[in-house]
């Protein structure tokens, strides 16, 4: 019998709690496949955030932490400083990374912490009920911005990748999307590079993954992927923001 599809070793058999059509499942799988391919499952320590992926510690089949809201990069710093030879990654959403945890992510990047951050940006707070995120687009509605985000009132969405790419301590920053199979393949490549950069001790690495939230966007899963492509990508352009020379080449 030929195996054509199986669960990566770095994922547990647990059923996830994610909503139908949510792209967290895809992103989890990409991270797990990369950990498997790099052969570092037993050397990896992951940190789950507060937000929709709060239970990620049940899904990744590696040593895991659950961090306080926004603090995953600080927790990762503590781990990495104790075990510089281990692989440490954080998995964070937009509220966690770009609102309450802004200081932690900026300073982890500034220090050039040799960690990998997977930043899942779906422009909304999912778990707590569809509130406005720091990455919510202008005009996009949220339960705390019922008339749509108004820059006069709520200001502008933050482009974290662009900000972090300015930091000398950041070695690799890329923005990808998972709205179609081609982009999923590219996303995986970026995730893999972000882990390799850590293994080569080059500095801080982050992949921002544009992700959909059909439940809180009020769209069907397919419509949500279209909405992502049509609305998020123009404001959050895809591509590598920063990379070591040999990676760019």
């Amino acid at each position: 019998m030929i195996t054509v599809f199986e669960r990566p070793k770095s994922l547990t058999p647990a059923k996830t709690h994610y909503c139908p059509g949510c792209t967290h499942g895809i992103i989890h799988r990409l991270v797990a496949e990369v950990i498997d391919e790099l052969g570092v499952r037993e050397e990896t320590i992951g940190i789950a955030p507060v937000g929709c992926s709060v239970l990620a510690y049940n899904y990744f089949n590696v040593d895991m932490y659950e961090a306080a809201h926004g603090r995953a990069p600080a927790v990762a710093t503590g781990i990495k400083r104790v075990h510089p030879d281990k692989v440490v990654f954080t998995y964070q959403g937009d509220g966690d990374l770009a609102a309450i945890g802004t200081a932690e992510i900026i300073h982890a990047a500034a220090r050039g912490e040799k960690i990998t951050t997977i930043f899942v940006n779906n422009a909304i707070y999912g778990m707590t009920g569809g509130q406005m995120a720091p990455t919510t687009l202008i005009g996009q509605t949220a339960t705390t911005a019922p008339n749509g985000r108004d820059p006069e009132v709520q200001g502008y969405p933050i482009r974290m990748s662009e900000i972090l790419a300015t930091m000398p301590g950041a070695a690799y920053i890329a923005r990808v999307s998972v709205h179609n199979p081609q982009e999923v393949a590219k996303a995986k490549k970026a995730v893999k590079t972000a882990f390799q950069v850590q293994l080569e001790r080059k500095g801080f690495a982050m992949v921002e993954v544009l992700s959909s939230c059909p439940t809180n966007w009020g769209l069907t899963p397919l419509k949500a992927l279209e909405w992502l492509k049509d609305n998020m990508i123009p404001y959050y352009p895809l591509g590598v923001q920063k990379a070591p020379e040999e990676v760019k080449a």
């Binding site: 503590g78 932690e104 300073h107």
Partner: peptide, 10 residues
């Protein structure tokens, strides 16, 4: 805040 979370990690 970051310091105590680094302690949590370590």
């Amino acid at each position: 805040v970051a310091a105590i979370n680094m302690v949590y990690g370590a």
